[in-house]
Design a protein around this nucleic acid. Structure first.
Lengths: 237, 237
DNA sequence: CGGGACTTTGATATTTCTCAAACAATGTGG
DNA sequence: CCACATTGTTTGAGAAATATCAAAGTCCCG
């Protein structure tokens, strides 16, 4: 007897925030409450548009989104991915403007994020979430700046694995990644052709299993080791 | 008759924050006050160490710093540069841990940043500063991911020009950049050899003048145009 | 004046891109 | 349930961008 989808999604988001800041009862209640008013978003819809007002902070209950930036000639950079439990458009300034466009990669469920003033633990969770976001941006810079194609792909997969596990969405190295090789290319500053060949090589040498968009990292620790990726600590303290 | 150096530095930092959030009297006073207790930092010293506690938020009064990350095999990524008026180690969590190491690129003057609770305008200025920081990280990702060497260098120079102008430190396209070509390379994911050759090409075709670490961008707007760089708005509203 | 830190140059190697086409999977309307 | 269209993946061959290595040149400091 399955839970209704929105309940399930709410639980997942709560799980993640609880890890970020150990929620008190008020915080948990607020999240559950917010999730009850969830909306469905179609794939490819924009959640936020660069340079336009941010109407409200959103919480992702299910599905993936990405932050993107377009160059004038059409080149596209995927700045980062947003997963269930992530916040979209968090700002503490009234009348803030979106620094990037955010697009739904898959169909999604989202809701308005409860206001941080509701509970100090929630506020701490948001603040921790922000720090994670910064961490992901810094990791992305390092990938793009100083890693080769092989390392970039491996490192990104490991980050996604870590993040999905944190949200309770990946088990034992198995992750379903709902994005095309072209998107991976746009995230990693490569061509989709090169991503394709590199993925093949990774599968050939046993670093990866699975096919299509189904990835199995059978030995995450070994893989981390092989590219010298540090383990990311979940909690600050 | 020159101002004492610390007064001058304090004024510059104040100018920048005033642009970010129109400081009230209390905010200005707090900044001037803080700057009076400035410390001198030697080039190459660490202001912050990755994974270690952040003891306090610092305000840069003069000199440049950089955020760096090292890979296990010694490759180095410069994540971004920190200029006068920038904050180092701002966090709203008690007991936060530094997400990156920050190293002084030149000798610097720094002081403890006044606490945001002193003035709402100061708090807004910090928050705006944070958004700028995010903007710079996103720009860095785009440079590394989807621009070629020529564009990366041009775009970085233009960003630094904008930022120095915002702090009142660059005039009419002339900027003195106290960093080696090797650092530029580590920031832009290139080899210093390639940076050298690309800079030569930029000077040859007239995009840049000046020599050594002295850069003159005689026509910033044309250069911006040529690589399709958007003008960065200073204020949100 | 000597030494260290940067910059510049040349020759060659490697990675990644480009273009073009074939192939596979997936979804949609009839 | 088919047929077609669309979207994504795979392959091959050749080209371009950037890295590597090694040495020479320049500049600045003490």
């Amino acid at each position: 007897m399955a839970l209704p989808r929105s309940e399930l999604a709410a639980t997942l988001a709560t799980v993640r925030f609880d890890k970020l800041a150990t929620l008190d009862a008020a915080g948990k209640a607020a999240l559950q409450q917010a999730a009850r008013r969830s909306r469905r978003i179609q794939r490819k819809r924009e959640l936020l548009t660069e340079n336009e007002e941010i109407p409200e902070t959103l919480l992702i209950l299910s599905g993936w989104a990405m932050r993107i930036r377009l160059l004038e000639d059409g080149r596209r950079q995927v700045l980062g991915f947003l997963l269930p439990g992530d916040l979209v458009g968090l700002s503490y300034l009234e009348s803030a403007v979106a620094s990037t466009t955010v697009v739904a990669v898959t169909d999604m469920d989202i809701c308005t994020a409860p206001h941080p003033s509701i509970s100090p633990s929630l506020a701490r969770g948001y603040e921790t979430g922000r720090m994670f976001e910064e961490t992901y941006l810094l990791a992305q810079i390092t990938r793009l700046g100083r890693m080769n194609a092989h390392e970039r792909i491996t490192d990104l997969l490991l980050e996604l694995l870590d993040r999905l596990e944190l949200a309770g969405l990946a088990l034992r190295g198995r992750l379903e990644i709902p994005i095309t090789q072209e998107l991976i290319a746009d995230a990693l500053g490569l061509t989709s052709v090169h991503v394709n060949r590199t993925l093949q090589a990774l599968r050939r040498d046993g670093s990866l299993e699975g096919k299509g968009r189904d990835f199995i990292v059978s030995n995450p620790d070994a893989l981390r080791q092989s590219i010298g990726r540090r383990t990311v600590r979940v909690m600050a303290a």
